[in-house]
Structures are given as C-alpha cells and as structure tokens.
Amino acid sequence: MDSQVTTITTDEGRRAAFDIRLRVFVAEQGVPEEIELDEHDATAAHFLAEAGGRPVGTARMLRRGGVGVLGRLAVLPEGRGSGLGAALVRAVEEHARREGLAAVELHAQTSARGFYERLGYAAFGEEDEEAGIPHVWMRKDLASR
C-alpha cells in the first residue's frame, strides 16, 4: 500500500486528522471529546498519514521552549502495523529539527512505551494518568541523532 506523511496545511486535512483522533481516542479508548480536542490544536503543527489515498493516521507537535512535544498520535485499525506510526514520529522529529528544537518529548500511553523506545525515546519521571489511562513522559534528544 502506497503511504505518505505530510504536514497539514488545509482545513480539509485538519478535519481528517480530528476525525481520526475522535475515532481512536474517543470512540475506541473512551477519552472525553472535550479533553481530546483542546485549545492547543489551534497552535500545533499537525501531520497526516495516508495509505492508498485515504487518511489513516495523525499526530501533532506543540512547541515548549526548545523542545517539541509530540502528541495525539493515532492510527486507524486498518493502518496499524504498517509502519505509519513510526513514519508520523519521524515526520514530527524532522519538523522539530527544522524548527531548531533540541529534543522531542511525549506523554505516552504506557501500552505504547515499547513502540517509542524502539524509536529511540527514553522514559523519565513517574507514571501518571491522563483521561484515566496510564502514561509516562518520554524524551529523545535530536542533536545526537
């Protein structure tokens, strides 16, 4: 299946990304919609993964000082296991590098910790909960990679 990841620049792309997030986080995982779609969406950089010409994954990056914060990484069931999640992470990292940021951090669901570790992220701090789901903060320095 032909796939690609792009930075979202259109309202149509944003709607597709939000639809994916609602399907994955709200419908599948039970996260309240008012938590999932938040005030940070207006200022974040958004990314869309397509496979076979259809939107199947998304992520966003916020800027916090000299660090990019990857969040809202979601891939629809039909795109899972295809490498699109890793491609989205790489797109966020490249965007952060172009912005001159030193690192990327993320608040990972603990069930996804191994996925991020395979991509070079290391956990820091204690586990906590977000929307009733266990999470851990993770970080990858970009300067050394």
Rank of each mutant, 00 (worst) to 15 (best):
L84Q: 08
T43K: 11
G53A: 12
P55S: 07
L70M: 15
D38K: 03
G57Q: 08
E39F: 01
T43D: 14
A108W: 06
G81Q: 09
G53V: 10
A44T: 12
G68W: 00
R97I: 09
R90H: 13
L88F: 08
T58S: 13
L84E: 02
A44I: 11
H95L: 03
G52H: 03
G57I: 06
A74D: 08
R63L: 14
L37P: 03
Q109C: 12
S82F: 00
D38V: 11
R60F: 02
G68E: 10
L37G: 11
H40C: 12
T58M: 10
H95E: 15
L76I: 15
E93Q: 11
G79P: 07
V75D: 04
V69S: 10
D38N: 11
E78M: 02
V56L: 15
R60L: 11
S82Q: 03
L84M: 14
R63Y: 03
H107R: 11
L101D: 05
R72D: 14
D38Q: 08
V56K: 00
A74Q: 09
A45N: 00
L106Y: 10
E50F: 00
E105Y: 02
E93N: 09
P55E: 07
L70S: 08
G53P: 03
L84W: 00
L84G: 04
R80K: 04
A103G: 05
I35M: 13
D41S: 11
E36W: 10
A96H: 03
D38W: 09
V67R: 15
G100S: 10
T43R: 12
L37A: 13
R63M: 12
R72H: 15
R97P: 07
L62G: 09
L106S: 09
A86E: 08
A102F: 00
P55H: 05
G85L: 04
L70E: 13
L106N: 08
A102S: 13
